[in-house]
Design a protein around this nucleic acid. Sequence first.
DNA 1: GTGAAAGCGCTAACAA
DNA 2: TTGTTAGCGCTTTCAC
Lengths: 350, 350
Amino acid sequence: MGAMAAKKRISKNRNTPTVKDVAEKAGVSTATVSRVVSGGENVSQHLIAQVKQAIVELNYRPSRVARNLRVRKANTVGLIVSDIQNPFFTSIMRGIQDTLQVEGIVLLAANSDEDVEQERIHLETLLAEDVAGIILAPASSDSCTYADILAEGIGIVVIDRNPKNLKVDSVLVDNVSGARAATEHLISLGHERIGIITGPKHISTSQLRLEGYQSALQDAGIPFDPSLVGMGNFRQEGGYQVMQALCSLMNPPTAVFSSNNVMTLGALQAIHEKCLRIPSDIALVSFDDMPWAASLHPPLTAVAQPTYEIGTAAARLLLDRVKEPDRPTRKIILESQLIIRGSTVVPDYD
Amino acid sequence: MGAMAAKKRISKNRNTPTVKDVAEKAGVSTATVSRVVSGGENVSQHLIAQVKQAIVELNYRPSRVARNLRVRKANTVGLIVSDIQNPFFTSIMRGIQDTLQVEGIVLLAANSDEDVEQERIHLETLLAEDVAGIILAPASSDSCTYADILAEGIGIVVIDRNPKNLKVDSVLVDNVSGARAATEHLISLGHERIGIITGPKHISTSQLRLEGYQSALQDAGIPFDPSLVGMGNFRQEGGYQVMQALCSLMNPPTAVFSSNNVMTLGALQAIHEKCLRIPSDIALVSFDDMPWAASLHPPLTAVAQPTYEIGTAAARLLLDRVKEPDRPTRKIILESQLIIRGSTVVPDYD
DNA sequence: GTGAAAGCGCTAACAA
DNA sequence: TTGTTAGCGCTTTCAC
């Protein structure tokens, strides 16, 4: 009975105490410990104090995974993006984390590298990991790819891209109108030969941005010239190569719309190498506003996407879905915003 | 016995099948199912086939969390960085993920925002989440902050920064020599008034980079001028403000060393606003090489850190530590590399 | 108000 | 080779 009894009673080899240890130390049952941990409803003040002390003394920390197993409820959410290094996605991730943290949910982050096979592996892993739900920037536009995942009955929300016919919650940006705004801006400045650096055909955002570009041209009565369209790969080299090609045209464009942020970096390199001046020799607009855009010389005109909000909205949709699995699916479309800077317009000095 | 018996036997309300369901369907015990799932040792071909078929038919997927609970072994690792949006950290994260994925380990990523309190919350969460280990870019240089975490007996490796007297594995970059190389480079170009934008005093990398800067000056016999030292906050505005201040000096520097990538973005803005030319009016070197560095005009001279390797090394250290908790701690110091571009040197056109 | 006991999905002795 | 059983750490009826 001596409180000083030199009893080192730690369950198992690992030295982390369990409910059992706490119960023993406090002289109560594990049920009581559990009650105290979860708020102390229906427990006498007396025992609460006793248990709390034992908890402190043992430095007890309840295992969430054991709890989750018991209550059949996960507190993890999975995220799969195509490029974790792209500021577009990290900002989204930030929004997701901030929203989930409030609910005590942690994020398992994975990277598909735009590769359907990798994506599939990660999806499997996350399912096996018993996540509460998954937020996904799909690498494939083919909804069949995700058919069996959906059959799994797990909450899923797609962001940025939306595979056709996929019946899930989604958070998207109005790519068409964003691209149209960018193109119209160039047209309003008097440009008529406007190039575009597009992304891979199979990615919906590429298609939609091209669509916006084309519709702006059409509305302005400017004929569409296929030679001004260069397909990049959403990577830096892609932007570089396409821009080089555009500049080498017999009749090069006077302005270019780059439909993704990292391709813009490549495009800039090509422009600098050719010693062209922005915007006088060539004007440039980019889809995606990035932290470095304002630090360029001249600063970059860009279509800003509400990245952080995409993240918070997606997280919220997922939480709702988990709570209410049978609710009708929702599609949230956020607006982009054209931010005009020096890469298209020479600033007035009055 | 009819295979067509319309028995919908799914355990629990959630419709995901368990070992039990598979066992029942295959007409074997759960133990056999478990054996088949884990490789099929000591199971007859006959039953293996039977079980596998049941698994496919039910679309069974073993719960890793249940498994982990049973075998007392986690397959998650936690990562806490101070800014998940900083390319420096995303690249590290990439290295970590690529290394862990091979071992079937998934990453729980969290963001401390350079805030000790947030960091503490995340540490607690990760511990409760029963992670196998934690990779941490510490927000505090005070090792006391982490004392009780270490007492937890969990594997932990720190990256980028190293709190004094903290006995854990670490992966660091040689900040002093990196900063010295940058400064020496400027000196070799004939600069004598060299400014520096430092980070917060309490972050070790700030101190060390300042140290490298000072030692280079000293070696060159250039007196240290405190008015040329401006303390930023490792954020963009910080770099902007410090650069503005430096440029407004009676006798402004002819070159500046910015000791962190995002502050460099702010510095660039300030330089452009003042319509100064790089490198003729002011030369600029940055610690951290970033994807956009080569796309600037002129491209940015920078001290490149082996970010991806930091990640892989940290992951490897952690895996080793988990396997062998009592091994002596190791400190890995990686070299940085000065990449000379146009922001310090006008390229030759021969 | 409190405890005993069952069980979440899984694995690992131990028996057979 | 296969099944029975106990138990990982936790919560939650159900008795008392």
